[in-house]
Design a protein around this nucleic acid. Structure first.
Lengths: 142, 142
DNA sequence: GCATGAAACGGGAACCGTTGTCATCTACTG
DNA sequence: CAGTAGATGACAACGGTTCCCGTTTCATGC
């Protein structure tokens, strides 16, 4: 299961990756589709979903579920050796910063183990407003 | 504004809470609906959703989005004040343990702040298999 | 370069969970 | 006990995602 040589090289697959690479943040499948079409690519929504899922499966893309039932995708380093990571995502523009979270990993393992749970997985997503989209300084910010 | 006495006391509202209380884990809205009907309550799916959302809004229930677009609900201590907490949820039966996560709270604030993000919120869900549903030790690394 | 088999594509329908609509019903108040 | 605001629920609408299946395109051998 090393070589997940799933897909054949196609224009559409390239288009999806291209759109994803051009965006420096998370995008929904529909946004990717719209962007690809806008860029002149001939591609169907179904195909966008197919490629997005393939990328996610192969670990070439990260997925977050924003909580309102809309999955968002983002390209990430092909085989980011050992680095399971998380993101801080801007609620407004989808921009994101990648952050490592060794403490959180350990914490998850520990509390789950303490409760007797096995095969532990976890989802950690941090949402916020990036500097550019920060609202009026409600606290003491200058 | 303390008493968010939003809803009138009705049989249906009681039924939803009853079902939720009987289950010691997370349940989807549809499951709650099915259980209520099975228990002989006369109630509609719409109403189940309404009460579930009310409970969640008032902080009387926790919600997790299992990642496949299905929200799951669980009763929790009425007004547990500042106690923002998380859960370890069994993938198979929905059973869950409540866990406090002060370190994670701090971590989220810190990394988001470091990246210049404000209005930070986060979702942390840990999934696993409870002792009862553990599979044979497969040595699989997540 | 061209034929060929297989994989990928894509339009539209199907699905599924969730929310909106609105006429009817019911829990509370006076 | 009657009046009324609010709750209910059957059904339709909705939005995101997946399935279906005939058509197109890729990759390869000739």
């Amino acid at each position: 299961m090393t070589a997940t040589q799933a897909r054949r090289a196609t224009r559409q697959g390239a288009a999806v990756e291209e759109v994803l690479r051009a965006a420096d943040g998370f995008r929904t499948a529909q946004e990717v589709f719209a962007a690809a079409v806008a860029a002149g690519h001939r591609i169907g929504l179904t195909t966008v979903y197919r490629h997005l899922n393939s990328l996610a499966e192969d670990g070439r893309a990260d997925v977050v579920h924003a909580g309102d039932g809309e999955a968002q995708y983002r390209l990430c380093g092909a085989d980011d050796g050992g680095g399971h990571h998380h993101h801080v995502v801007c609620r407004t523009c989808g921009r994101s910063e990648e952050v490592a979270a060794p403490e959180v990993e350990r914490w998850a393992e520990r509390v789950a183990g303490a409760a007797g749970y096995t095969e532990v997985s976890h989802t950690v997503e941090v949402f916020g407003l990036c500097p550019e989209h920060a609202t009026h300084p409600r606290a003491t910010r200058s």
